[in-house]
Amino acid sequence: MLGLISKIFIWWKDATPGTLLTLHNRGAQQVGEDEFGNRYFEEKGKTGPDGNKRRWVLYKGYADASRVPSDWHGWLHHTFDAPPTETPLKRQTWEKDHHPNLTGTVHAYRPTGSLTSTEKRQATAGDYEAWSPNQG
């Protein structure tokens, strides 16, 4: 019972009941899951006006588009026909692993001198003199 109530009122944590109902009514089947726990679905049978089947992502936790890896992003936008579970993207040696945008989280980048940084700001140059309204 508590799970149903939380699904209705805490919509930002998982799929809403409306989304789950849409997936069920359209006969969407799960195609795969990424390393972040996001689940990917594709509509069975019918295609849209552009000739493509509709595709969805159900985020695990907070819905943030930057948490979709590039190979799944390409599949969602019909750049690739086959999902990465069937034909994974060829990784280049210089490519780094995908990381979501961490802005606004405790893991965000905070350079020295930032208001949120715990490190002390660098000393200013010796020729700098702050203006004061009391100076003549």
Rank of each mutant, 00 (worst) to 15 (best):
P88R: 02
S6Q: 09
H99I: 07
T47F: 10
I5D: 01
N38Y: 04
L89C: 07
D71N: 12
D64F: 12
P111N: 02
I5W: 02
L20W: 10
P83V: 07
R55L: 03
E33M: 10
E43Q: 15
G27P: 05
W131L: 12
D127H: 15
N134F: 10
K46Q: 07
Y62F: 14
D64M: 07
G48E: 15
R121A: 01
I5S: 03
E43V: 14
G45E: 02
S70K: 03
R121L: 01
A28F: 13
D14L: 02
G37F: 06
H98P: 03
S6P: 02
P88A: 00
V106A: 15
S70D: 09
D50F: 06
Y128W: 14
Y59D: 08
T93R: 05
A123I: 08
M1F: 00
A63F: 11
T85L: 08
K53R: 15
L4R: 08
G126R: 04
A130F: 10
A65T: 04
K44D: 14
S132Q: 08
A108N: 12
R39W: 06
L89S: 12
E129V: 15
F36K: 04
K46R: 07
P69R: 03
E43M: 08
L89P: 05
S70V: 08
Y59I: 11
P49D: 10
L20F: 08
K90Y: 04
Q92E: 08
D34S: 05
E35Y: 02
Y109V: 13
